[in-house]
Design a protein around this nucleic acid. Structure first.
Lengths: 142, 142
DNA sequence: CTAACTGCAAAGTTTTTGCAATTGC
DNA sequence: GCAATTGCAAAAACTTTGCAGTTAG
């Protein structure tokens, strides 16, 4: 979630470059902790706080993506039917989208909600190859 | 994220019923904290731990939905282009989906990934009515 | 120079857990 | 009764922040 545009002049930092390079050279969608561990191999004194700070800077300037969520808290929904949500990137409020036309377009979407739509995020849930074979005995009902 | 199917016999609990009722009677997609505060009005001695425990039980039995994420950690992606992710509900690993056919169906999706697809979650990002008017001066580039 | 940045450690937030007491079946 | 559940408080997990020292421009 882009914070307010930073007002200060950005300086080069070896640490920030390292974090970005690590992230650019993996397809593993890592956590901050993982990035920190990688970074320590090249720069043993880098701190976890610095990694977090730089991840936030890089995210705010659009150089990297924070996947899924920009909030720390979980939210719950008493309605378990499949339905879509729209979330405000400013205040974090969440509303339901009902009557979704099947092949949605941004334009169509715009017409069924009050929100100004900036984009969407689609996440698939499934079981990876590795887990499929290690749990062949379990039932995942799908 | 459904945990392993619980093996023990579930008992009725007033607290669990209350949590479920609170969740069923709002459209606000609340946080655990909010639910806890509501619950205290009816049951002053209920504890936050109990609310969390019951939210997890209810989610595991499929009575409620946890929105967006079942993980606490943020994950980062060096690729900022729009693309889809597929996440393993068991180990939590995340992979990219490329070459996504435009009108995707579960069947089509199944054919382009190794994952056993259980479902997907679509989240729209936007700016709600209230925030639009309170920030008419800002530019959200969309 | 000086403001951005860092490392470190402490604090903040959200969620989980251990334990003794309680309660549903 | 006995195991599931609870309240409480402590701990765990993740992220942010205050501060004094360092560094890029």
């Amino acid at each position: 979630m882009p914070q307010k545009p930073s007002t200060h002049i950005k300086k080069y930092s070896r640490q920030r470059e390292l974090v970005l390079n690590i992230l650019r050279s993996t397809k593993s969608h890592p956590t901050a902790e993982w990035i920190y561990n990688q970074a320590k191999e090249k720069m043993p004194h880098i701190s976890l706080g610095t990694v977090y700070r730089n991840l936030n800077v890089l995210r705010d300037e659009g150089s990297i993506q924070e996947i899924y969520i920009n909030e720390n808290v979980r939210r719950y929904d008493g309605d378990v039917r499949d339905h879509y949500h729209v979330r405000c990137v400013l205040c974090g409020c969440i509303e339901d989208i009902t009557n979704m036309p099947s092949p949605m377009t941004m334009g169509e979407l715009q017409s069924i909600t009050d929100f100004k739509i900036l984009g969407y995020r689609l996440e698939f849930l499934g079981i990876c190859k590795a887990c499929q074979s290690s749990t062949a005995d379990d039932d995942f009902g799908g």
